[in-house]
Nucleic acid binder design. Sequence first.
DNA 1: CGCGGTAGTTATTGATTACTAACTTAGTGG
DNA 2: CCACTAAGTTAGTAATCAATAACTACCGCG
Lengths: 186, 186
Amino acid sequence: MSAQERRESVIRAAVVEFGRTGYHGTSTEAIARRVGVSQPYLFRLFPGKQALFRAAAERCFERIEAAFERAAEGLEGEAVLDATGKVYAELIRDRDVLLLQMQLYVVAASGEDPELTAFIQQRWVALWDLVRARAGATGAQMAHCFGHGMLINTLVSLGLPADHRCWDGQLDECKVAAAEPVVRAG
Amino acid sequence: MSAQERRESVIRAAVVEFGRTGYHGTSTEAIARRVGVSQPYLFRLFPGKQALFRAAAERCFERIEAAFERAAEGLEGEAVLDATGKVYAELIRDRDVLLLQMQLYVVAASGEDPELTAFIQQRWVALWDLVRARAGATGAQMAHCFGHGMLINTLVSLGLPADHRCWDGQLDECKVAAAEPVVRAG
DNA sequence: CGCGGTAGTTATTGATTACTAACTTAGTGG
DNA sequence: CCACTAAGTTAGTAATCAATAACTACCGCG
């Protein structure tokens, strides 16, 4: 397997592992084991653990961005917001993306790595701007749309089942995401 | 100082440290240093690191719960939801509570400690039920209210300044929370 | 004085961790 | 067949961490 292909599979593994146990809670060995490769070899493919995490973060944002772009295709106005919500519900059936996203927020908040913090901030705001521009939405509309998204993140993180009373008032698509998560091979 | 007082100050330090760097990223030594006590002494006051984290989590929920109770006092219906939002904005000016809250979500999501996961889930749902009962709110109203709360958590975690465009459409009180955080001595 | 309990300490240990150095294996082109 | 390169290994290191063991200093009480 070429180094580039290997790097790709390492990133996928990193998304899963970092998503589950966070930056500090994830050992490079756990990632290597998931890839099926020796731990020291990771350091041939990436300069260090931080770089690994950043690559995983990048992948996470790319996936969300692609989903949002796809949602807005051919639509405009409020329809974009609705479509974004539905696409997001589908996206987070892949539990790994959601978990890593939450990890990114706490990493950004910690401020341990200012460069990484800035990166996460910038990419998140880019998502916001993307939806806002495509939908031509007001601040209140954006808050409503993204507020629901963040609430869903929380409900799923907490592991509340789809028929739990806290899910009342949410899109049915989102409940599906809670009820039938797609567990990826990684 | 009595052991009980010491335990209290340890909990306060744990809230700060765990909030900033998470469960795995926080060493017991960091907590001890903040308290101004030797690291092994923590294990006289608490059986282990997990117990320390749980105590911090408990404190976090107690603070939020108390704030929500206070908000609902003497009000009913939608007024409760408004008051809850305002009180929450004030609450999270204490950055430590917010950061630890985010950490609790990822810890719950990781499922590493099923007992702790169940605890966090239960306490979070209790908050939900508290507000819902006091406000007599519908599912959609609850989603709106808590959705905004979770969005605020995210915006603050990301460190977006109060005048950032992503804050458009939020309560002014929340912007104050972003602009003038109360940094507690811990 | 002396005795016990309470609040604390220093020293240490075994496990884990990110990361390095040096070696091996396998294909490929001449 | 041989040199070169690219992919991957094993072995090891210095540092860190949670937790334990064993000691000390002080306080009130008889």
